[in-house]
Structure formats: structure tokens, C-alpha cells
């Protein structure tokens, strides 16, 4: 087994392989699009791409948040709880403050982002100060979030009818709804943070080699907490877009985001070990997962096969796109 691994290592050792591997997620996406279009030509239409964009937008924001944490070599599994709390906070604030973004209601947006940031900070502090593995700390915080949102709503759904807010879904520019542009804007901000700020570079430093980063004088604990705060803020953006998509805020708003976002990040080619990948990879990953979800319905795959096929496609996408050379052991 070990000899086999070594042989794989030598085979993939080459800069050409590296540059090809970088594009594998994109190629996977392209192949999927071509495949679904071949089976049902309706798939390849602007209207369908707009539908995929609607389902991808909230997921993209959540996955981008998770990307920062994964780049550091940690993991954040609190998104279902955080998204639920932020969605409920947003909806409650908006409805309390007159129910429209046009007046004081806009405060609901920074309010939700603040809630996300606070939850992220708590998450990060528990992980760093109490030295609890991020996996466990964030998973538990996710449960806390679900409980908290349930407490706030009492199990009820909060409806948002503000036409201005719902224009994120209903108003289209160049065939795509506004929420797609909002998500793209969020992505560009995340890209800027990742590539052009010290903290962004520090995420890579911590993920690439924590000991080295510490030895060169970096306050690793601080970087980690900031990473979780940033993730929380992006989860809140995802929550707002999720509410925009359905007009409903409830505890179940967060449901499904954990699988969706972690899968997207990994399928996009960001290594779970940390230090490699980035937010553009995550965009490709989110699109892959949503194209699969949409495509399976469009080609009419029987529903009892869909979950299984999704799992298999995800495994193949990860197999093709992840650089396992650096992994002596897959954690």
C-alpha cells in the first residue's frame, strides 16, 4: 500500500500535473453541464442557469465563510445553527422596524451580520481558549444556534413580504435575479480579503504550517478567532439570501447547509488539510453541487436514485480534484 502511495506521489510530482489539477474542478463542472445538456437540451438555457443561480446564491455565501476556516486547517460545522439564528434575527428586526428596508428596516442587515459575527467569535473563542477541536466546538455551537433560533421563534415561521427586499429574487438584470449579483459581490469582497489583506495571507500561513507560522511570530489564536468571525459574517449573508429566496425565516432555514457547503468547498478543490484552495474554487464547487441537484431533476432521474448518485458524483469530483499528494493520511 505504501509503495503504491509512493508511486502515486512520484507520478503526480510535476508542475504540469499541478497546473492541470488546478483546473480539474472547472473541467468537472464543464463535463456535468455538457452531460446534462446532452440528455435534456432544456438544461442549457439562460432561464435554467438563472434557476441554478438562485439556489446557489445562499449556499455560495455560506460556503465562502466555511472556506476561510478550512483554509486555516480547521473546520466550521456551525452553519446550520448560525444561519437559522441570523435569518430569524434579520426577519424579526425587519418586521419590528416597520417591515421595509426602505425605512429603518435596513438596520436588520447589519443586525444579522452582527449576530453572525458574534456567534462566530464565540465559536472561535471556545475553539482557541478552551482548546476544543474546531470540529467539536463548531458542531456543538451549531446545535446551540438551532436551539436558540427555536427559542426565538417558538417553532413558528416568520414571513417577509417587503417587496424591496424580495426584489432580490423578483427583479432581474440581464436575466439573472439581483441575489445572484449580491452573492457575486460578496464573493469579490471575500476574494479581496483572501488575496489582498494580511489576515487573508495569514489564513494560508496557519493552514500551510501552524508551527512555522507560530515560530515566525504570528498570533495563531487571534488569526483563528478572526477566521471564525469572518465565517460567521458570511453565514449571515447566506442567511439573508436564503430568506430572500423563500420569504420565510425559521429554524429550518439553516437545514442542509452543512452538507451543501462543506461538500462544495471540498469539491471545489480546497484541501481539508488547509493552506490550499480559495474562494474561487468554492464558487466552482457550489456550482458543481447545484448543477448536479438541478440536473438530476431536469433529466428526470428517479428520486430514489438521486441521493445515491449525488454521493457518488461528489466522491468522484473530490477524487479528481483534490491534491492528495501532500496527505500521508486522509483525515
Amino acid at each position: 500500500m505504501r509503495r503504491f502511495m509512493r508511486r502515486v506521489a512520484t507520478m503526480t510530482h510535476g508542475s504540469m500535473m499541478d497546473s492541470i489539477r488546478k483546473w480539474v474542478p472547472f473541467l468537472v463542472l464543464l463535463v456535468l453541464v455538457l452531460f446534462f445538456s446532452a440528455v435534456n437540451p432544456h438544461f442549457l438555457s439562460l432561464r435554467n442557469f438563472a434557476r441554478i443561480a438562485v439556489s446557489s446564491s445562499p449556499a455560495l455565501m455560506v460556503a465562502v465563510g466555511a472556506t476561510f476556516v478550512i483554509l486555516m486547517g480547521s473546520i466550521d460545522l456551525s452553519m446550520e445553527g448560525t444561519v437559522a439564528v441570523c435569518a430569524v434575527v434579520f426577519a424579526m428586526l425587519l418586521n419590528r422596524l416597520g417591515g421595509s428596508l426602505a425605512h429603518v428596516g435596513w438596520v436588520a442587515i447589519p443586525g444579522a451580520l452582527l449576530a453572525g459575527g458574534v456567534l462566530g467569535a464565540v465559536n472561535g473563542l471556545i475553539h482557541v481558549r478552551l482548546r476544543i477541536p474546531s470540529f467539536m466546538a463548531s458542531l456543538s455551537m451549531g446545535f446551540v444556534g438551532v436551539g436558540l433560533s427555536l427559542l426565538m421563534t417558538g417553532g413558528n415561521r416568520i414571513l417577509i413580504d417587503d417587496p424591496l427586499f424580495r426584489s432580490l429574487l423578483t427583479v432581474r438584470v440581464l436575466n439573472f435575479p439581483l441575489m445572484a449579483y449580491a452573492a457575486l459581490g460578496g464573493l469579490v469582497v471575500a476574494w479581496f480579503i483572501q488575496d489582498n489583506t494580511t489576515i487573508g495571507r495569514n489564513f494560508y500561513a496557519v493552514g500551510g504550517g501552524e508551527e512555522l507560522a507560530r515560530a515566525s511570530g504570528l498570533n495563531v489564536g487571534r488569526v483563528r478567532v478572526i477566521g471564525f468571525v469572518l465565517a460567521g459574517i458570511f453565514f449571515a449573508l447566506g442567511a439573508i439570501l436564503a430568506v430572500a429566496r423563500l420569504g420565510i425565516a425559521e429554524t429550518e432555514t439553516g437545514q442542509g447547509f452543512m452538507f451543501l457547503s462543506i461538500t462544495s468547498v471540498v469539491v471545489g478543490g480546497t484541501g481539508l488539510a488547509g493552506g490550499s484552495g480559495g474562494v474561487w474554487n468554492t464558487l466552482v464547487g457550489v456550482l458543481i453541487v447545484n448543477v448536479i441537484g438541478n440536473g438530476m431533476v431536469v433529466v428526470g432521474l428517479p428520486d430514489y436514485l438521486q441521493d445515491g448518485v449525488l454521493g457518488l458524483l461528489v466522491i468522484s469530483a473530490v477524487y479528481l480534484s483534490m491534491d492528495r499528494r501532500s496527505l500521508s493520511f486522509a483525515r
Binding site: 434557476r51 439556489s55 423563500l246 429550518e252 437545514q255 442542509g256 441537484g293 431533476v297
Partner: peptide, 16 residues
Amino acid sequence: WDTQKANQVMSGFLTR
């Protein structure tokens, strides 16, 4: 029984 999944399935139906 899920709102988000129904949303996605319905948009798939609309394409199909």
C-alpha cells in the same frame, strides 16, 4: 416535506 428542496425541485420541473 422540505421547503428548500421543494423550491429546487420545482425549478427543475420548470426547466424540464
